[in-house]
């Protein structure tokens, strides 16, 4: 990222915990990143890595018993965590909006698509007339590639197919021209040919509307397709962050390397045996005192099991939290 590029959102040392009867679950354990205008960042991780929780805390949708217990979220210079619920309500949908994984559960089945689209407009702008709102809603539906929008606007969600519903969700999210769009696994529930359609649409709209996107997914292929930079999360922490090319062609953290090596690729010459990451993800109720990935890491050292690794700056915005980088540095110094 360029130095003079203004930051849209900055997250510093964010910590989110869930206070469950069984104990505290540190779902997000100190993550930091920043996102500039017109940038697309991918957040990759397995289920339970905290990637959705982090996004929910930006938009203020964290549910009990989840609580932000530390850190800060700054959006265009304003502290989001200090917002009152009313301020948050104005902010949500207007400046930041979100699309979710399953479009069926996010659309209200008893209202028409048009009704739900127009609601987003009237909530944030009390002066807008019904006719204007309707015209805007139709225009937006056309933008997301829904044919026959005049007629479609009076239909109910069940009359839309899965791909169409996700298009309607995107229309609803973008109708107030937000500066940041959070997309939480928007294509996971869709078939590959529909996924390709939606990705193509999101790329096109991102260019047209200059929206920044935080794209949450577990699919590395989707990240390669759409993102400018990527954060890889494991058990509530960011383990590696880099520009998309650096991450795929020069991965540094053992977890990122493992993920890339463990997946079969359609473009490989002869199928080779997959190299899996052994073991299972850690229990967040009893996290290890050392590196969270330590117990599954092939190159685990003594220090990895006792102390959490700091980030090593590898230049050009590429950071990776692993003791191995420091081992190399130490080796070089001794030489």
């Amino acid at each position: 990222m360029m130095e003079d590029n203004k930051k849209l959102i900055e997250i510093k040392d964010l910590k989110v915990s869930f206070f469950t009867p069984a104990g505290e679950v540190k779902a997000v354990d100190g993550i930091s990143y920043e996102l500039g205008y017109n940038e697309v960042m991918g957040v990759v991780g397995e289920s339970g890595s905290g990637k959705s929780v982090e996004a929910y805390s930006i938009i203020g949708l964290l549910q009990n018993p989840g609580k932000v217990i530390g850190g800060s979220i700054t959006f265009e210079g304003e502290d989001l965590l200090a917002y009152t619920p009313e301020q948050m309500r104005q902010f949500r949908g207007n400046k930041v909006s979100m699309i979710f994984q399953n479009p069926m559960t996010c659309l209200n089945p008893v209202y028409t698509i048009g009704n739900q689209l127009m609601e987003a407009l009237t909530v944030h702008d009390s002066k807008i007339t019904k006719e204007e709102a309707r015209a805007r809603a139709i225009e937006m539906l056309e933008k997301v590639g829904i044919n026959n929008a005049e007629k479609r606007i009076n239909q109910y969600p069940h009359e839309f197919s899965g791909g169409m519903r996700q298009r309607a969700m995107i229309a609803m999210a973008l109708i107030c021209k937000p500066k940041l769009l959070i997309a939480d696994e928007p294509t996971t529930a869709l078939d590959v040919t529909i996924q390709a359609q939606i990705l193509e649409l999101m790329k096109e709209l991102q260019k047209k509307e200059n929206t920044s996107i935080i794209f949450i997914t577990h699919n590395l292929g989707v990240v390669a397709e759409i993102c400018d930079k990527v954060s890889v999360m494991y058990a509530g922490r960011i383990v590696e962050q880099a520009k998309v090319e650096d991450l795929f062609y020069n991965p540094q953290h053992p977890y990122t390397k493992g993920l890339l090596a463990s997946q079969p690729r359609i473009d490989e010459e002869e199928p080779e045996r997959l190299i899996p990451i052994e073991g299972t993800p850690i229990d967040l109720l009893n996290p290890p005192s050392g590196c969270n990935f330590g117990p599954r890491c092939k190159d685990c050292m003594k220090i990895c099991l006792t102390k959490k690794p700091p980030f090593a700056d590898l230049g050009d915005g590429h950071i990776s939290a692993c003791w191995l980088h420091f081992k190399d540095l130490k080796g070089k110094k001794e030489e």
């Binding site: 040919t193 990705l199 390669a224 397709e225 359609i266």
Partner: peptide, 12 residues
């Protein structure tokens, strides 16, 4: 052609 490739240059 719809399968996402984990390779930014190739897939774009």
């Amino acid at each position: 052609s719809a399968v996402p490739l984990p390779d930014p240059v190739k897939s774009r």
